[in-house]
Write a protein that binds this DNA or RNA. Structure first.
Lengths: 189, 189
DNA sequence: ATCACACTGCACACCGGTGTGCAGTGACCT
DNA sequence: AGGTCACTGCACACCGGTGTGCAGTGTGAT
């Protein structure tokens, strides 16, 4: 039923991923609707942002817990995570983009669960010896996560690097030896 | 002579690194000066930004060409680059932060030279076989560069990861084997 | 003493984004 | 046909940041 509301959220995820400072007007226009209509669904900009983040966080935690529950090694779980997230990676740029900015504090709070799950996965990998320990889990997870989305961002030109390259890169930076990384990612493209 | 002007630029680098959307008022306040005074030195906000970026870009290109001219292997050059940049890495967050945002286009243009030098260094490393080729130089350089500053950003807590961890991480993600990376970075902290 | 000059402390106009109010308009339901 | 409901298309007030004008005020040089 809530057709417009859903489209609004989809479009906002996209628009704000490109420009975190985009206003209600731009989002409305991108959704083929008038600004006034947006306020009909979300009483304020912050309200829209919050709903958006909650949705994104829910999807991410779902993927992470699912992948974690398979009982696989941490590096295998990471590969599965990136593979699951990659197809919609551009949707999740917003997670990174909105941490700074006007409502940064509010948004940052919403991201807590995701940060925790990521850090836990990396810690598990470090404890079992598959990930290197050159950085504490909380930081290493953010860097790896950031690298994956940075690569997804550069994915505009025709010759796209693709999921394989992003997975390889993140595995390397997590300290997985090249041989093992190649085996995990499938030796041939 | 231009004491206030210089302090303004220093402070702006710092403030804008924390919040790219900081206004002239915040910058002025942080410099212990009144907003009106800032306009006495820089006719517009964009003008301040441009001056700032030119200064930052000049410093970066200086370091990069210098490090490049030693004729060292690309991985050694990268280590030297990070070592030289690290002490003031937080100053250069602004380079990343301001690419998006209001004057993104203008700023992006200013960064061309730095991007090119970085990509050239990485390409040199790939051609001589010390860096992996899982990503094209233009992207790999940006990811490595981003990782270094992401780590510098997380450097707030008492137990700071430090330059060593940042160097290790970037080397790994560039595809340098752990053994070689440890040798380059000095086997003991 | 006076001049230059940098900074101050107000005033103001302007702009763009937010959020609201309210009278339509059209589609769909019954 | 009548009613509901979402969207429209204006109106508006409000806010915060930008950029400017101008009359001070203090300090250092001569």
């Amino acid at each position: 039923m809530n057709e417009t509301r859903d489209r609004l959220l989809d479009v906002a995820l996209d628009v704000l991923g490109r420009d975190p400072d985009a206003g209600m007007g731009e989002i409305a226009a991108a959704a083929g609707v008038v600004r006034r209509t947006v306020y009909g669904h979300f009483p304020s900009r912050l309200d829209l942002l919050r709903t958006l983040m909650e949705r994104a966080v829910a999807e991410m935690t779902a993927v992470l817990t699912e992948v974690d529950a398979t009982g696989a090694q941490a590096d295998e779980a990471w590969v599965a995570f990136v593979a699951r997230v990659w197809p919609v990676a551009h949707r999740y740029r917003v997670l990174l983009a909105l941490r700074r900015g006007e409502y940064g504090e509010t948004i940052h709070g919403l991201l807590g669960p995701v940060d925790k799950l990521l850090a836990d996965l990396i810690r598990r990998g470090q404890d079992s010896g598959v990930f290197a320990k050159h950085l504490p889990p909380a930081i290493l997870s953010q860097v790896a996560y950031g690298a994956v989305f940075a690569i997804a961002d550069s994915d505009l030109p025709d010759g796209s690097p693709g999921a394989r390259a992003a997975t390889m890169t993140s595995l390397l930076l997590l300290g997985v030896p090249e041989k093992r990384a190649l085996a995990l990612v499938g030796d041939r493209p």
